[in-house]
Simulated assay, not measured.
Amino acid sequence: MAGWSAMAGTHEFVVPADHQARELAQALAAHGFARVTARPSPQGGWRVTAFDEGPYPVDAIGHRLIDAVGRAAAAVARQHGGYPEGGSRCDVSMLPVLRGADAPIVCTNAGARPPTPAVVVLAPPPRRSLALTPDTAQDVPIDLSGLDDIPWADLGHAHGSAEDIPELLRALSDPFGDWDSTLDVLFGDDLLHQGSCYSATAPALPFLSRMIVSGALPARQRLDLFVWLLVAADRWADSLLGDADHAVAQGHLPIPATWTEDVHLTVGEQLPELVSRWETEPPAVRFLLACLAGLYPHHARRIGDQISLMAQEFHGTRPGAYLLLAEALVYARDDQALAVAADIIAWETNHDPGWLEVADVTTAVKAGHVLAEGALRALSDAE
């Protein structure tokens, strides 16, 4: 965005047939878009493109504004059996280039501009460090029994057969191994590649929990494993929110991505043993443990009071905001969770306000996604 004078862009929608594409293009033009086109999509159906001339400021408020306009356009699309499917952002001078060749359906409304909803971007609360001390690690073995009983060769990850997973898990438990590289290959490349889950993802996760509770790993490594457990647990909610608009257009409830539900349930099964470590963990690890607990209130309510105390300790800071959200979720206070999540989104511009507007998804899932996404950001801010 460096050098942009002002921002414009496109909003893309998909409808099943040409008559719906024409009707939607006409409706979006009437809504205020100066130019709307539609053409057959290679993936099936028709793709309708609304050209948003803006101009919007090239800052957080500008992005919030164009995104809000896009969400209002998505509501129009839903009335015509359509759902959003991406879009683009560019300097205003590049918008004519995006128009490309003439499409079979073109609707214009010269000089028009869609309504611009009011948006709020607040100043974020101050950062607050999360200590990794005091730390204790013991020279004890890590129990990996049962690792070879899993039919890894019959399971898969991002690059094919999962038969290499036992070797990677053993390498991760080796105190003299290359921790960072092994962890990156295991999860970044294989088991959670680009946020996807695979048949081998869930079976591998209990071994992370064993490493954490063994007492053999230093706090920094335990923190790394909690990060991946939180990322894994959130894939289910992320996929539900991502499918919500498509589901509405198809007339069914959102469908989670393949294997994400198994992964979510597997992380939850580890939580009772993990929360038993609350008193022995330093603040940074407790913070992630509290956020993970917020995704599984039925497993974690017994540390609710401790989460409340930590939220008070960090009150008025970025970590404190997420701890307050975790507390609300642990105690199933949906209205409070929604309010806290909305407050966070007002200052955390990397969060999508649309998460809280999704239909047919529970408040706990929506607010929990804000918690999981933001916790990792707050942790990196503090380090």
Rank of each mutant, 00 (worst) to 15 (best):
V267E: 06
V36S: 09
A200Y: 09
G251K: 00
G251Q: 03
G374L: 01
M94R: 15
G100W: 02
I150T: 10
S308P: 00
V231L: 14
R35E: 08
P84C: 10
L379H: 01
Q250R: 14
S276Y: 00
D343C: 06
V267Q: 04
A103P: 04
A158I: 00
Q20F: 01
A77C: 10
Q250D: 11
D91Y: 10
L95K: 05
M310Y: 05
G160Q: 13
S161A: 15
D148W: 07
A8S: 14
V275G: 02
L289M: 09
A50D: 06
P40Q: 08
A171Y: 01
Y198H: 12
A342C: 09
L329C: 03
T362G: 14
H80A: 13
P203W: 12
H157T: 07
L122C: 12
R220A: 15
R318W: 04
P282L: 03
D305W: 10
G294V: 01
P16N: 13
R99F: 09
G87C: 12
D262L: 03
H264F: 15
T116F: 11
T258Y: 11
E23F: 04
L223F: 00
T349V: 10
R222L: 07
P254D: 09
I142D: 11
P175V: 09
E279P: 00
L24C: 12
V15G: 00
A21I: 13
R220Y: 11
H159N: 12
T49V: 15
P57D: 02
S88K: 10
D154T: 13
W179V: 02
T317Y: 03
S199H: 01
D91R: 07
A73Q: 12
F207P: 03
D189R: 14
D135I: 08
G70M: 08
A29S: 15
D59V: 06
H80C: 11
G160W: 07
L172A: 07
T317N: 02
I165N: 01
A74M: 10
S380G: 03
H351Q: 15
L376R: 08
A202F: 01
S308Q: 10
M211H: 01
A257R: 07
L169Y: 06
G146H: 02
V121E: 05
G54Q: 12
I150L: 08
H299V: 01
H246A: 13
D335L: 07
A200W: 05
P254C: 00
S308M: 03
L295V: 08
V15Y: 06
D305N: 13
A103D: 03
L186I: 04
S129D: 07
E273A: 15
A110C: 07
A17N: 14
R89P: 06
P256I: 07
L329T: 05
G215N: 01
Q336S: 12
L230K: 06
